[in-house]
């Protein structure tokens, strides 16, 4: 499963952050689902030809966000969505990032309705991949 991870060392984004971003996105799109095992640190390091500490750092970052869980001796697994943590600060940060996008949208002449529709379409790209299950709030 590691083959879809693509890293670019010349990027201004550190390599560990590129891994975090791609795995997070795969989880959001349900390409990786609860219980799926991530490749072992050393295996992924060898495959991507990067330092094992970089992979370990990415995994521990994902673990801090509770997206994955490491079980000693058996590996790192995608967490059950019920374990995902979110607090007021996360919601705040999300709102601020949305503000940036809304500002840009309005600046290039989009209307509120266009923006809302666009946001819904983009979200559907993630959610439609999840197997129909109604999300329980």
């Amino acid at each position: 499963m590691a083959l879809w991870i693509q890293i670019s060392p010349g990027s201004d984004k550190p390599i560990y952050a590129q891994i975090v971003e791609q795995i997070s996105e795969a989880i959001a799109k349900n390409e990786l689902s609860a219980g799926d095992k991530l490749p072992a640190v050393r295996k992924l390091a060898a495959e991507l030809v990067i330092n094992p500490n970089t992979v370990a750092r990415a995994y521990s970052f994902l673990e801090q966000g509770k997206l994955v869980t490491t079980k000693t001796g058996s590996g790192t697994f995608v967490s059950d969505p019920r374990l995902y943590s979110r607090d007021a600060a996360d919601i705040n940060m999300l709102a601020e990032r949305m503000d940036t996008l809304i500002t840009r949208g309005l600046n290039i002449g989009l209307e509120a309705g266009d923006l809302a529709a666009m946001f819904r379409d983009r979200t559907n790209k993630f959610v439609s991949k999840q197997k129909s299950e109604e999300k329980k709030k």
Binding site: I7, I15, A46, N51
Partner: peptide, 30 residues
């Protein structure tokens, strides 16, 4: 670079390498 990663995964190995290619350094160095 692959060879370096292979070596470093063995217990207690250390590598020092000079390079002008910063992308390579970022890839394998910690």
């Amino acid at each position: 670079l692959s060879g370096m990663i292979e070596i470093i995964m063995r217990e207690g190995r250390t590598i020092l390498f000079s390079s002008h290619i910063l992308g390579d350094v970022e890839r394998v160095a910690d």
